[in-house]
Design a binder for these strands. Structure first.
Lengths: 248, 248
DNA sequence: ACAAGATGTTTACGCTATATACAGTGGTGG
DNA sequence: CCACCACTGTATATAGCGTAAACATCTTGT
């Protein structure tokens, strides 16, 4: 509230709309005085887009499609959201919501980071489009995204690592979750079967070119295994971090 | 050669064109008998698309733009490439080329995996669009991609790990390279400065909400540091793998 | 020589995001 | 009270995308 609405000084057209987008993400928007009551809010729009993406995938989330969800024209959305980029940012913020309270859930940096990763993973599983949405370019972070980051960094504080190291470890763990989401997106059930069939046929014809791969497949490296991929990678990473800590 | 050209039995329209795309990737195309000589090849098209993407980014690689590079119409490309998806796959195969000979370059699984990661990282740096290109959906792997995978798996064979574990470790290391590329794509120089400025202003206003993050920034966790991010993550991961090996 | 098959162009369709111009609504200052 | 004007929503238009379909042109096997 309070801040007078600046009369839209977009000299750079779309270059410096960052502040507008940021204000949106942080909910710092002042409602207008005169004129008809808005029938929508950025949050309601984002929520509709989220349920749409959950149901039919991110690629079906177009301005037209989302607007149709409210029975309005596509251009109506631009009264609430500067553009599609910002809409996607709002979607991300919407599904992230508040991070879990790690200090309550578990004790010790390792257990806390581990539950952090599992919670984050749960979000990726619930909203498979999240990976693609955050993989797009030039992200600005909203409060929820920062809160997740804060939670992970807080868990790392008692380790005795330097600030730079803690940051790197955070990136490492966050990356592991993203990677797993990526792998899941690449190989769904059907595709995996098809890929395996075609690739094995090709490998039979070129087995001399890929000896290690051929052997790995023969040894069942690609058949679904009992070890959870998230935990496997996480354990390796955290073991490595533990080594670093012990060394200091 | 040899295989008679099937008269294009696309009943599913675009669902079962996979074999066509695969044949392209593996160079198993038979040249036609009658008709004018083709003025292009899939490889030349892909190469032009690669240099275009290197120079102006993947988003400017459109069928029209690539076709213009040869002075032909956009539709002419469809005589050589089934669609844009397959073109991008060809681009990926083109820039990957043959993996390095790790057994010659270094000895020991750790050194070999490390150089593997560095070589892969070099490719990502030379072609920043590679991340986005491989992040797209439903990839089928070409021979070069499989060759890189084979090289990494070969390096892991002397570790004594199970086939499943070796596969997981491979995914872990490959993921680390991808993650770094992702971070580089997210935060280029200019954007980083701008992000830091805006975020620090927001953090000043909400420092109570993000105590650990605020402290981390104050401690210089985000200022460019001397430790190489690729090596830092890699060292943690490989340390963790070493722990696993020792335990067995 | 002729037919067959391959190449390349033209045209068109449906889709995307969004700029622009306009119509209706309703709170507020004169 | 009423006119103004900020604000909402719509209609229209543009530029671009990938690609389907119809067509003309060229080359080669028969």
């Amino acid at each position: 509230m309070a801040r007078a609405a600046k009369p839209r000084e977009n000299k750079d057209k779309k270059a410096r709309d960052l502040p507008t987008g940021i204000a949106l993400l942080w909910g710092e928007q002042d409602q207008p005085a005169r004129g008809p009551k808005p029938s929508l809010t950025p949050q309601r729009i984002a929520q509709a887009a989220v349920t749409l993406a959950d149901a039919e995938g991110l690629e079906t989330v177009s301005m037209n499609r989302v607007a149709a969800e409210f029975g309005v024209s596509a251009m109506a959305l631009y009264r609430y959201v500067p553009g599609k980029t910002e809409l996607v940012e709002l979607m991300v913020e919407a599904v992230l919501s508040e991070p879990p309270d790690l200090s309550a859930a578990s004790s010790g940096w390792r257990a806390r980071l581990s539950t952090w990763a599992h919670r984050q993973w749960a979000v990726y599983q619930a909203h498979p489009w999240l990976l693609a949405a955050t993989a797009m370019r030039r992200q600005i972070m909203g409060p929820h995204q920062l809160a997740w980051m804060d939670a992970a960094l807080a868990a790392l504080e008692p380790t005795g690592l330097t600030a730079g190291q803690r940051h790197q470890v955070f990136l490492l763990v966050a990356g592991q979750v993203r990677n797993l989401a990526q792998q899941r997106a690449d190989f769904d059930e059907d595709h995996n079967r098809e890929w395996g069939r075609l690739t094995s046929e090709l490998l039979n014809r070129h087995s001399d070119r890929f000896p290690a791969l051929t052997k790995a497949i023969a040894d069942g490296a690609f058949t679904p295994t009992e070890l959870d991929p998230l935990d496997f990678g996480l354990d390796r990473i955290l073991d490595g971090v533990q080594v670093l800590i012990d060394r200091a």
